[in-house]
Structures are given as structure tokens and as C-alpha cells.
């Protein structure tokens, strides 16, 4: 008598059991999804860039409009000898320009990742699409925009005869760290953003809080109250370090390396948290 064919082993098991009970499987699935998401991310990025500037009057120039505006304002402010414009050895226009470019990139990264679930809910709740595709596309969009802004910064520095320091490459790394912080925080906010309207309210005042606690345009005098506030803000450390490396060469290597390690951890933690929360965020998304 012929033996019945043995039942094959499943290639994938999905259960209600907590995924953190099997950390290896959890990490393996995350890496598999990350790999699978690369073509999707590439295609989404190309489409987003087209969509972003498709219906705008200035097209890609919108990426550098805030930076250009700030340079003009800082130049006028300097000529008028505006008292708050103490930017140390860095020309105020360059100081403000770097500040606005980094903050704009930080906010763009934060918002793109924050919207990764809620902005793609229709797609994510109908098909199993790796979320990493949306996260990478958001980060890529910010990176393209940042590159264009840095070209504008180089152009303004050339006009003002303000050459960069030899440590500019480290400055670019530090600028990248600011953007990565935005990516990580945005990623961690994404599930909450999909589940609740709270984040919409938070985002109304968060830019103002950051504006008040971060040296974007001005550098407070050492020992002043504002300097003490800025000293508590890790984003301020990153901004100052990036500007120092890019303009004067007096950045802190220990801060750069420490920030790199901390951001790597934060990025992975935010990614895992978002993956863990995704199914709950999708089924409880606040439309």
C-alpha cells in the first residue's frame, strides 16, 4: 500500500503569540522585509519626487527657497547691525543658512517618517507591503532635498567668500546626523500618528518649541539663560557640531562618534518599535 505523502513543513507561521518571544525570527523577518523593500522604496521615491513638484509653481526650487530667504534676511540684519546676531567666527548668513538647512531637513525627515503609516494606510491595510519601503522612500526624499539645499549653501558661501573648513566632510556627516535624528524620531512617532489625532496637535507647536530651544539663526552668549536651555537640547549639540566642522574646523570628534553610536541604536530601536506596532496601528488607525 502506498504511503500517504508526508505533510510539508510550512514556510511561514503567523500566530497571535508576541513576536518579541522569538527575537531572532523577528530580526530575520525585519531584515528580509528591508531587503525586499529596496525596489519598492526606489519606485516610491521616484514617484514622490515627481508628485511633490508636479503641481508647484517653482518646482524643485522650493527645496532651497527657505534657505535663500534666510540668507537675504541675515544679510539685511547684519547690515542693520541687529543686536542678537552674534554668530561668533561664522558669518551670520552662513550660520543662519546652515541652521535653516539642517532644521528644515530634520523636520522634513520627521514628518515624512511620521506619516509613513497614516499616509499609506489605504495601501498598507489592503496589501502586505513592507513598511520599510515607505520609510526608506521618506528618508530618500529628505536626502534628495538636503543635497539640493547643500548645493545652495555652497553657492551662497561662494558669493560671501566664506570658504568651508578642511573638516567639511565631517561637517556633512554631522549634518547627516541631524537628518537621521529626524528619521528616527519620525519613525517612532509613526504608529502613534496613525492611531491618534494627538500628533497633529503636537506638530502645530513642536516647530516653535524647537525654534526656541535650538540655535538655528543666533548663538546665545555663553552663560546666558538661553545658552543653558540650548545646552539641554541634543539637537542643538548636533547643529553646533555640524556648523563647527563645516565652517571653522573646531568640532568635537567625541560628540560626532558618540552621536553616531547613539543614533544607530535609536534608529534600530525606532524601526523595531514601528514594526511591532504596525498591525495594531493599521487596525486601529484613526481615519
Amino acid at each position: 500500500m502506498a504511503q500517504p505523502e508526508p505533510r510539508p513543513e510550512p514556510i511561514l507561521v503567523i500566530s497571535a503569540e508576541s513576536r518579541v518571544r522569538h527575537p531572532r525570527r523577528f530580526i530575520r523577518e525585519a531584515i528580509t522585509d528591508l531587503r525586499a523593500s529596496l525596489p519598492i522604496a526606489r519606485s516610491l521615491l521616484a514617484q514622490r519626487l515627481r508628485q511633490r513638484y508636479r503641481q508647484s509653481s517653482l518646482g524643485f526650487l522650493w527645496a532651497i527657497v527657505p534657505a535663500a530667504f534666510v540668507s537675504v534676511v541675515m544679510t539685511i540684519g547684519r547690515k542693520a547691525r541687529f543686536p542678537l546676531m552674534d554668530t561668533g567666527p561664522i558669518p551670520p548668513q552662513v550660520y543662519g543658512l546652515y541652521g535653516i538647512v539642517m532644521m528644515q531637513s530634520f523636520m522634513e525627515a520627521l514628518n515624512a517618517e511620521r506619516m509613513a503609516i497614516s499616509g499609506n494606510r489605504q495601501l498598507l491595510s489592503r496589501q502586505r507591503v513592507p513598511l520599510e519601503g515607505m520609510l526608506l522612500a521618506g528618508a530618500g526624499e529628505m536626502l534628495v532635498s538636503l543635497t539640493m539645499k547643500l548645493v545652495a549653501v555652497a553657492f551662497v558661501c561662494l558669493l560671501l567668500n566664506a570658504p568651508p573648513a578642511l573638516t567639511l566632510p565631517l561637517g556633512l556627516v554631522a549634518i547627516g546626523q541631524v537628518a537621521v535624528l529626524g528619521v528616527a524620531l519620525g519613525m517612532a512617532m509613526a504608529p502613534w500618528n496613525a492611531m491618534s489625532r494627538d500628533m497633529d496637535h503636537v506638530m502645530i507647536f513642536l516647530p516653535w518649541v524647537l525654534f526656541a530651544t535650538t540655535p538655528i539663526f543666533i548663538r546665545p552668549r555663553t552663560g546666558s539663560g538661553l545658552a543653558r536651555v540650548f545646552a539641554l537640547n541634543p539637537l542643538a549639540w548636533l547643529l553646533d557640531n555640524a556648523r563647527a566642522y563645516a565652517c571653522t574646523g573646531e568640532g568635537s570628534l567625541s560628540l560626532l562618534l558618540g552621536a553616531a553610536a547613539a543614533l544607530a541604536l535609536l534608529l534600530v530601536a525606532a524601526w523595531f518599535l514601528t514594526r511591532l506596532c504596525l498591525p495594531y496601528a493599521l487596525e486601529r488607525a484613526n481615519d
Partner: peptide, 23 residues
């Protein structure tokens, strides 16, 4: 939606014997 892996089950388990599943 559960079979498409868009939702996770609250209880029980699913076994997939193929990865070529489209919803």
C-alpha cells in the same frame, strides 16, 4: 485580510506553504 497578512490574528495561527500569495 488575515490571510493576506495585513492583520495579525488575536488568537490561533496561520501556516503558509507558499510565499506566492496575492490579495
Amino acid at each position: 485580510n488575515i490571510a493576506a497578512r495585513v492583520l495579525r490574528p488575536s488568537l490561533g495561527r496561520l501556516e503558509f506553504f507558499t510565499d506566492r500569495v496575492i490579495a
